[in-house]
């Protein structure tokens, strides 16, 4: 019991530290989920309805991102992006990398959900004279959303555990590291 109150003491002492950490985790995750989902819907649309070259490019993107560890993605957006003139601070780099990661997963979810809708739905919509855009917004998308909701929630929950890969003060001070990496490349 004594130990437990000692623990509570420590928690109380560190309450602001913990809350700040929690806030940061939540805000990185939520931002990444939101941005990643928007981007992921575009990815899913391209995978489902894009022409052949577009599908090829987007397919390569998703396969590459999904096959790359999150830590590497974060490293890449923190260090490599700066060499092409995009300087992100630690927070931005973390959100960016996680959003990209999220987008590839959401893209696959969207593609799967859209392709699972029976062809008869599109045909019925066409038969009453709907254009593709109208068919998509009124018939296909509402059904796809319902279908992908559970998987999407899983992905979102998964994303919350990812910010631990974000750049921290333990990482080489990025100004110097970036200068070094850009010098190494040039």
């Amino acid at each position: 019991m004594n130990e437990f109150s000692a623990f509570l003491d420590q928690v109380w002492l560190a309450r602001f530290v913990i809350l700040r950490g929690l806030g940061l985790t939540v805000s990185i995750s939520l931002l990444a989920i939101a941005l990643g989902s928007v981007l992921g819907v575009l990815v899913g649309l391209a995978l489902t309805y894009g022409n052949r070259p577009l599908r090829f490019v987007v397919r390569a993107y998703t396969d590459f991102i999904r096959g790359t560890p999150v830590l590497v993605l974060v490293l890449a957006s923190f260090y490599i992006l700066s060499t092409i003139g995009i300087e992100l601070n630690a927070f931005q780099a973390g959100v960016f990398a996680l959003a990209v990661f999220c987008s590839s997963h959401v893209g696959e979810i969207v593609r799967g959900a859209l392709q699972a809708i029976p062809a008869g739905q599109t045909e019925a919509a066409k038969a009453i004279g709907l254009t593709f855009r109208q068919t998509f917004t009124s018939v296909l998308w509402p059904q796809a959303l319902r279908q992908m909701l559970p998987t999407w929630v899983n992905t979102a929950a998964e994303m919350v555990k990812r910010p631990r890969f974000c750049p921290s003060s333990a990482w080489p001070s990025f100004c110097s590291a970036r200068r070094r990496s850009s010098r190494a490349i040039s």
Binding site: A6, F7, A14, V17, L24, I28, P163, R164
Partner: peptide, 21 residues
């Protein structure tokens, strides 16, 4: 950039209550 897990590790390094935290 100190998110939840990193903050936890910092705290543990100060008080060594690893399991609890």
């Amino acid at each position: 950039m100190a998110e939840l897990l990193l903050r936890t590790q910092e705290i543990i390094s100060r008080n060594f209550m690893s399991l609890e935290f």
